[in-house]
Design a protein around this nucleic acid. Structure first.
Lengths: 340, 340
DNA sequence: GCTTGCCATGTAAACGATTACACCTATAAT
DNA sequence: ATTATAGGTGTAATCGTTTACATGGCAAGC
């Protein structure tokens, strides 16, 4: 049944024109006279022609593909961002590759290789923990202007990034608790080496200070965004003789773990302790109690990153400004917070 | 700083051999004599040569890439499977493309195009709702033997698939409830057009029958795997005058929604109603109450699918048997179920 | 009527690898 | 000694596009 797929040559023959004309009809239709153009289109239709990507890529010295670097593909937090990225590239004829940067075998860790061997011509990193080796190689090979960060980022990196306004998020979380009458506010952080952790902690501290609340270092509990670390934080809090009345968690998962842990110890949320999360993942709305949290527009992060990279890739001359696109965050008040 | 990247020609010159020899050293080292081989390796190292993928792909008429078709990238359920797939291809030099089959613009919906234009040479579909048009096109273009299904599948499709033992899962869920003394067992299904829905419902019905439990059609509530549908199911159940004492949900998310909904109506889980989920997603362990559920090995699904496809792709001659690899499931008993 | 310029098209040279085929040893077989 | 064989290497064709350059025709300007 299936013959060899038609080549541009076959289309040219069918339309009675040269291969150059066919190519032009496909990529630059305005150059052609209307009858020729339509003859080509007709021939394309009748032959069922599809341009061969490998050949095009070789000739054009581009890959028509980008890579998304995900720190942990199994983490549902990233999936919505991926959805946004996928959407952002949907109409653009660019293929989206993904890879899990943590599970990359050692000998494939050289990220520049993806560029150098022509597999991709752009990259979106959701991973803010790239090594300095990575960064210097990006610079050396001049691929820095085809990389953007989304959600996370590397400090002082000369690449543009899209992120949520994490600082503000922390502020309004604390503010919300303050308005409910809470004065004794604790914080469970993210992992130590993470920029988000830092910014959220800073925003939190700044707001606590601004409102004249006690700066209790023992109420800053180290976590790592995970359910488990929330659970552990709960044990720490339960063991305190001088307990906070509210906890702002660096992620929703931490909040879930925390609430589960508090419940297990007989403390009720929000009656005994109010809890605020960060992210507004899907489950937040349906947790028991429904979680008060700071919403990040994760799809928006993905979409913007896609748009940004698409821009960088088309206007190659464009200054690779290390601009930061800050997406707004909002407080979603639900049932895990209550007046003191 | 950065010169043009070296070509195979440059390596050949540096090593004092021909391009053919360089190519062989890279792809088929055994063909060469030890000194030549090492000279080439040395030249590769000193020049920093990387083989150009577009050129290789063009010449070899393959893409060295596969596509993963995800029905909804935003759904965290799939992310772990993606992780498994990513792992499965990690050492193999195959690029993993992903696309969200629901957000695909109409004119890109022709899945065979990915094959025909040489962008991919294999596909893993997590989407069991491919159209019959898709299926006939796969057959017509002879790409059926480079496709595998994971988790979901299309009925009667001539492609291999990896799935969990959903039937057994439903059975042991019901059995577990039975052993706890429950006799009035309800079920919230998945979406109507889904194979998983069907199999899980069948397993459930069969077990209910085997145990001589009442077959109450009004205790089969239509859902769609979502939190929301679980919530709606809760309302239905609350409104019943003749309530079940336990509910087996087609997914963990449904179970979460259900529990949240029951709680909102003043019914306690597991005291008033026991609930079993399906999947064992990360949150299940940390929900309140911790969710009793049927564990699917999602990473394993991904890994097996990857291995299967890799096999199909290398042994192209291999009969494209529509074999089914069934992964075992296990009951994880937690706190959402209790004796009647 | 002849030049000039422009526009639509065609011709053919890239792009950078793989590999069929040819060739040239060196060794084994006769 | 001569031929056959095999193994290592080189030469050059090939994969299917895109695009620089060449070409030819036609309208406008003199």
């Amino acid at each position: 049944m299936s013959e060899k797929p038609p080549r541009i040559q076959d289309v040219a023959r069918a339309a009675g024109v040269s291969t150059a004309t066919v190519s032009r009809a496909l990529s630059n239709p305005d150059l052609l006279t209307k009858p020729t153009r339509e003859a080509v289109f007709e021939a394309v239709r009748s032959t069922g022609y599809r341009v061969n990507r490998a050949a095009r890529n070789l000739r054009k010295q581009s890959a028509n593909a980008i890579l998304v670097l995900v720190p942990n593909l199994g983490n549902p937090f990233f999936s919505k961002i991926l959805e946004g990225i996928s959407e952002g590239f949907a109409g653009s004829d660019v293929s989206v590759l993904i890879t899990d940067s943590n599970h990359l075998p050692e000998h494939e860790r050289r990220l520049t290789d993806y560029f150098l061997d022509g597999r991709i011509d752009g990259m979106i990193s959701l991973d803010g923990n790239l090594t300095t080796t990575d960064m210097t190689e990006f610079a050396r090979e001049n691929v820095g202007d085809r990389i953007v960060f989304a959600c996370e980022w590397v400090q002082d990196a000369p690449m543009p990034s899209v992120r949520s306004d994490n600082y503000k998020g922390a502020q309004i979380a604390v503010q919300h608790l303050y308005e409910l009458g809470h004065r004794r506010i604790a914080h469970v952080t993210g992992p130590a080496d993470n920029r988000l952790t830092h910014v959220r902690r800073e925003g939190m501290l700044a707001e606590r200070q601004r409102l004249g609340l006690p700066q209790r270092p023992d109420w800053i509990i180290r976590g790592d965004f995970s359910l488990r670390s929330g659970r552990e934080a709960a044990q720490r809090i339960v063991a305190m003789q001088d307990r906070p009345s509210a906890v702002f968690c660096a992620s929703d998962e931490v909040a879930f773990g925390l609430i589960a842990g508090l419940n297990a110890a007989g403390l009720r949320v929000p009656e005994d302790i109010s809890v605020v999360g960060f992210d507004d993942i899907d489950q937040a709305e349906h947790y028991v109690p429904a979680l008060t949290t700071i919403r990040q527009d994760r799809i928006g992060l993905g979409r913007s990153a896609a748009a940004l990279l698409l821009g960088q890739m088309t206007n190659a001359h464009n200054a690779p400004a290390a601009e930061v696109e800050l997406l707004d965050v909002t407080l979603i008040a639900r049932d895990s917070t209550a007046p003191r």
